[in-house]
Design a binder for these strands. Structure first.
Ligand code: SF4
Ligand code: SF4
Lengths: 132, 132
DNA sequence: ATTAAATGCTATAAGGAGGTATCATTTATG
DNA sequence: CATAAATGATACCTCCTTATAGCATTTAAT
């Protein structure tokens, strides 16, 4: 029912970075701060780098940095890049082809609250997560 | 983000049965009606039987039947028996121990809508799913 | 009695998610 | 220049979910 652990890690990393804006942080540093398994963290940072949410610099003093305007990075974008947003658009019960023409009882009661969550995720940017 | 496929299958089976109340249906029949892989369907029916949502009868003309009062079987009960409801009570981001004292930004924006979904699932019984 | 139709039970396999380990490459510092 | 500190890339392992297969047992129909 919740997000994948990888998505959780990704969000934690990015929300940490947006609250420590401007700092160039290394994987080792983030590991010590966030407790995410080091090697796995490395993979996620690479992915976040390849998907353009952060930029990396190699070598000594290297690390990762947020560069894009954080008011334009929405939570839904991040989730979309990591685990995809298909879960919000496809059958809640996991069917490839809906046997009930999108009108089964479960659909009726859960479609709206699920859409509501997606709406929130699309409206909330990293900037909104800055602790003031 | 959504439920496990097994949970989806379970809900589909039970909502089918409640809408065809009184009928004793076989795994083969349900397979032809719902398209759930036969052997997997068998396992799920056994589980639903062991968890008391349905009762089985063996031999020719055997099959499965709803016997409990369907107004007392809530969707949340079914989900709880199949995949558990932990997902609704634990960290949305997948952490075992919350590093942020239950107050990170994601928690703030998603806790309430998630609780709302659980509330709906706890209030909706199989009887409510009967097509009138 | 025999057969057909059904569930009970259990072993196995494929696939993805989460996690670990290692080597290669880049770059700042002494 | 040599070293240390960092990322890039890749291979591997484990566990869980989903799915498949087969044998054993029960029961109704013939
Ligand atoms: S109607 Fe039911 S089965 Fe069909 S897509 Fe919606 S939740 Fe899935
Ligand atoms: S505050 Fe954040 S990290 Fe902590 S339990 Fe809530 S969602 Fe998880």
């Amino acid at each position: 029912m919740n997000f994948s652990k990888t998505t959780g890690y990704s969000l934690t990393i990015l929300t940490y970075m947006v609250n420590h804006s401007g700092e160039n942080v290394s994987a080792d540093f983030l590991h010590s701060k966030l407790g995410i398994p080091y090697q796995y963290l490395r993979q996620i940072l690479t992915k976040l780098s390849k998907t353009g949410f952060i930029v990396s610099s190699r070598g000594r003093k290297g690390g990762f940095e947020l560069t894009r305007d954080v008011s334009t990075i929405y939570i839904a974008d991040i989730i979309g890049a990591i685990e995809g947003l298909e879960g919000f658009n496809t059958c809640i019960l996991g069917f490839q082809e809906c046997p009930f023409n999108n009108k089964c009882s479960i659909h009726n009661i859960l479609d709206e609250p699920r859409a509501n969550i997606l709406k929130i995720l699309k409206q909330t940017s990293l900037e909104d997560l800055i602790i003031k």
